Simulated scan of single mutants.
Amino acid sequence: MQSKQKLTVTQLKIYNYIVANKQKVKGITLRELANTLQVAPASVVRTLNALGYGHYYDLQNAIKAEDKRNQVVDDITYQAQYYFSQDVLPNYEQKITKFKRIAQKTKEFIFFGIGTSGDLCDYGARQFVNNGRSAFAIGDPYYPVNLCRDSYQEKTVIVLSVSGEGQPTVDQVNSFRQLGAMIVSITNEADNTIAHLSDLNFTYHLEYKIIGQTINLTTQIPVVYLLERLSRALQKDK
């Protein structure tokens, strides 16, 4: 995929779907893709043109060529290689600068996530402590945020959620916001409830890997990378 800069909201929606569902896209028609996204085929064509593709089949051929280049690579390695080749990495710089401004006003960081995201919250909190800041993790979806007697005005909650739509996590984010906390989130895509509730959101745009209804095997390599980038940003000389 080419650069996604200067895309409209609709074009960005199309771009994000293609990136997250490349294997589906290479096997369906232009009209089927447009119907899935509930947009006009012309909108898809304009998006592809903006991304540097002359025709829809050019995109499909590019996906097939990418598959061929990576066919001997295991899935995790492929996902990592793809993530670090995206143009999203340079785009993080502006957001990290904003995070530094938030950190300057933060006395304590709270990491919140459920399941695998909760395990990574423990890792993130430890990294922040290693870099000299007060931080702890909460993995309980029913943690009684509203019963806290202290204000959250000078606290920042870092929320980890692949989908950004888990209802217990959404409820907790709303509670933290109502009590004055700043919200920084890391989600796979930007168009979800938690991202919209956040003061700052980081995304990584990788294909979802879901087994059954509850087992999420989407790689967390980007989350670990972002947690370490943010923890290093806390150092005064950075």
Rank of each mutant, 00 (worst) to 15 (best):
L37M: 07
Q235C: 14
A50E: 12
R177I: 02
S163F: 00
N174F: 03
L230M: 09
D74H: 11
I215W: 10
L147I: 08
H55P: 06
Q23D: 09
V184C: 10
A125N: 04
E32L: 12
F176E: 03
A80S: 12
L230A: 09
V72D: 12
Y143W: 14
R126D: 13
L51Q: 05
L197W: 04
Q60F: 05
K155V: 03
E228D: 15
D87T: 13
R232H: 15
F202M: 11
G115E: 04
Q11I: 01
I76Y: 09
Q86Y: 06
Q94R: 14
Y56V: 00
V184G: 00
D58H: 15
R177P: 08
Q86W: 09
G212F: 11
A62K: 09
S85W: 04
N216S: 01
S85H: 15
L200H: 06
L7S: 10
F128C: 03
I28Y: 02
Y53D: 07
V44I: 08
D150K: 08
S161D: 04
L197S: 07
Q60L: 00
T218Y: 00
K107W: 07
A103M: 14
G180W: 08
Y78L: 09
G113N: 09
L33R: 00
I210D: 02
D171I: 05
I186H: 02
V72F: 05
P41K: 00
M182R: 08
Q60W: 00
A40S: 13
L33T: 02
V73H: 07
I211L: 11
N192D: 00
Y142F: 14
R133G: 04
L206W: 12
N21Q: 08
V73R: 12
L217H: 00
I215K: 01
L226S: 08
D140G: 05
S185A: 10
Q104H: 12
A195Y: 06
N35Q: 15
V9Q: 15
Q60P: 14
V162Y: 11
G166S: 11
I211G: 05
N201K: 01
A34Q: 04
I210Y: 05
Q220A: 12
A65P: 01
V88N: 13
G52K: 04
G124T: 07
L51A: 10
I211D: 08
Q5N: 15
L226C: 06
I138G: 03
A125M: 09
V145G: 06
I76E: 11
F109G: 04
G118P: 01
A42H: 03
K155F: 05
N16V: 14
V170C: 00
C148I: 11
L7M: 13
R31L: 14
F84C: 12
L7I: 10
L12K: 15
T169D: 02
I110W: 02
E32G: 11
K107P: 10
A135M: 08
T97G: 05
D140E: 09
H205M: 15
Q172Y: 01
G212Y: 10
Y17S: 02
C148E: 04
Q167T: 10
K26F: 08
T169Y: 03
F176A: 03
P141G: 09
A80G: 06
Q94S: 15
T156L: 06
L160Q: 03
R69Q: 13
I221W: 03
T187R: 06
A137Y: 03
I76Q: 06
I18E: 07
D58M: 06
S85L: 05
V45C: 01
D74G: 02
A42E: 14
Q23N: 11
H196W: 06
E189P: 02
D199W: 09
L12M: 12
D150L: 08
N130A: 11
